[in-house]
Amino acid sequence: MFTLDWLAETARHRDHVLVGLSPQNGRYKPEYIRNLIFWLQPRFRSIDVVIPGFEAAYTLVAAGHPPAQAVHRARRAYRQLRNPAVRALADLGVPDPSRHVTSWTRLHADAAYRASLIRSRKAYLTDPRIRRACREMTAEVVGNAADGQPVTQCDIDIAVRYVIAEIPLLTDGPDVFGADRSVFVYHRATPLVAAIADSGSILTAAPGQTWAIVSQEEENRDGHDRTGTPAAIPVSAR
């Protein structure tokens, strides 16, 4: 009931799949998360699931929520994504399932993630295309959370950290998760992946890094977004 749309067909593999769950999107409800993981896991040798770290709160802060409330909601959203993912992996018999569901914050324990994040921040500061992609994506997310309020450059300066912290997962999956090849799976195409994938940027993906978009077949028919209940961090689904 899902389809995987590889960014480069030639790069197809069955090594490692990295699933990004988003608290900003209404589709990531427990049942969807379970179905997605049940569908992906048997198709790859290994699987990891990543969930945004504390940076998720920046979207809400930029949209005008008090920080304490934003942090509280981001922490709750994290649990709401994590628990069904761990349960799904456990039910599939993946050993030590909670080790395979990781927040970006937790990934800081890994030297490869930290080194990649330093490169990502540098790229944001020095590469106009990466910078533009990060800011566009941030503006869109904050705009949705702000419910029609205008989004200022200052709001974007705060919330862009969220987008930057995800870059290592788009460029260095093989190194961070110890695989020869790793595919990052997400629910939609982003300008950031496009910028990284077509080598004109100073951010280069590690050898073996690939990307794919996953979609649910029913979703294509009924327009999932309109039927969705609110996201954990309520940002209208796109």
Partner: peptide
């Protein structure tokens, strides 16, 4: 803390 203490990234290395 802005995350649960279980999420803190200790690097044993």
């Amino acid at each position: 803390l802005a995350v649960s203490e279980r999420e803190l990234p200790w690097d044993p290395n």
